[in-house]
Design a protein around this nucleic acid. Structure first.
Lengths: 216, 216
DNA sequence: TTGCCAGAGTGATTATTGTCACTGAAGTCG
DNA sequence: CGACTTCAGTGACAATAATCACTCTGGCAA
């Protein structure tokens, strides 16, 4: 893909032009096919990544391979962990997966640090990223800590709708993984939602009609 | 309390001397009695805080007042949220409570930003704080997402032991709040731990004997 | 076209956690 | 030294979620 400063300007409004040029000249463009892993659990992170195109899913995994959706990265966002870990080139405890075909720019971690002092707008971007991810993580934590499975499922579907629209091409098993529960549980709860008219189920996809009536 | 640069030097090793002087001259020392709130949920945060002495407990609360322990701040640490929120003077969704008598230094949020460029070691401190809190939050998230109540309780007791030693002055009700469950559940599980020899129970306190044999 | 298979639906059963309704026990404060 | 209050222990039961054991179905490939 050909990335221009104009493309960057729309994705990262507020970045000074020198920074955008630096990103283009120093960063490496990488294309990743749908379904592939950008970062796998346990791997060392040696560069920060900016999402240019496509959707990236960030999950947490435990020792036995159970996983857990943390949040999605859309074009124009960066992974806070990639910025934080980059600073110490530590092992990641998360995995990043391309939900669709994805284009990213990776920034060698030495630059993520020197840019902090050289470009004010880079520093602002990094801080904004920290804050955003921290907040999303808190919201995720809330839903796990305070809500029951049916509420979490509705919350999940709403989030999916935000990133993928009203027609979700996703299996019950995938949803179960993201919520760290069993497929049967998801099937049953989805059935209930269908009966209440909030969604329509078909094989391999779910159409969202209206989730707002459910739980206020 | 009288705070010297030497005190700061031991709490915040690595900070340049100009920064330590700036903290002393620009920051406001505040003493908070045990049990009082430093930040309550919904309140605006208008300054960052550095913990000098005592123990601060950071919790998350939901709409119905159910709470949930996120992590503790010990002397020498700062609240990432206070740094992040400070940057936009946003409402906090967390509460901070003094577990013991606490001394903190608050830094007006304009300074937390200007220091980022003026003092390299301040910037490093802030990034290290982000990373630390992010990691702790992830660990908390893990334990909620992947573990059952008995494991979470053991995890909780281990964490308490780290900050307060082997003799915990805490009621079952408080533990239940921190884990966001019911007192009866905590009582039952503690009883089991006592029977296995891991702890000794008495009124208003718990003595930890050895938690290591439980769950590897 | 048939056979196969992944995805989905469902009942039965179990395990875990939450709730209710108590009893008792240990402080503590007039 | 009672009377009261807070904390803890416990049995019974309900609710939720996890697990097991299937069946069913639509789509794809041989």
């Amino acid at each position: 893909m050909d990335i221009t400063t104009e493309k960057l300007a729309t994705l990262f409004p507020g970045m000074e032009s020198g920074l955008k040029e630096a990103i283009l000249s120093e960063g490496h463009v990488k294309n990743v096919k749908e379904g592939e892993l950008l970062v796998s659990s346990g791997q060392y992170i040696k560069s920060a990544m900016l999402v240019i195109d496509g959707l990236v899913k960030i999950s947490r995994e435990d020792e036995d391979g159970k996983e857990f959706l943390m949040y999605y990265l859309e074009p124009g966002s960066a992974c806070a962990l990639s910025l934080l870990c980059a600073a110490r080139s530590e092992k990641s405890a998360i995995s990043a997966k391309a939900v669709s075909d994805v284009t990213i720019i990776t920034i060698p971690f030495v630059l993520t640090e020197t840019w902090q002092t050289r470009y004010r707008t880079w520093h602002e971007f990094v801080v904004a990223t920290y804050r955003k991810r921290f907040e999303e993580l808190l919201i995720t934590l809330d839903s796990v800590a305070f809500k029951s499975m049916d509420e979490r499922l509705v919350f999940y579907l709403k989030r999916q709708m935000k990133v993928s629209g009203k027609l979700l091409a996703i299996s019950h098993q995938e949803i179960a993984n993201d919520l760290s529960t069993a497929r049967e549980v998801v099937s049953r709860l989805l059935k209930k939602l269908e009966q209440s008219g909030a969604i329509v189920l078909s094989r391999n996809h779910i159409e969202i009609i209206n989730l707002d009536k459910i739980f206020d």
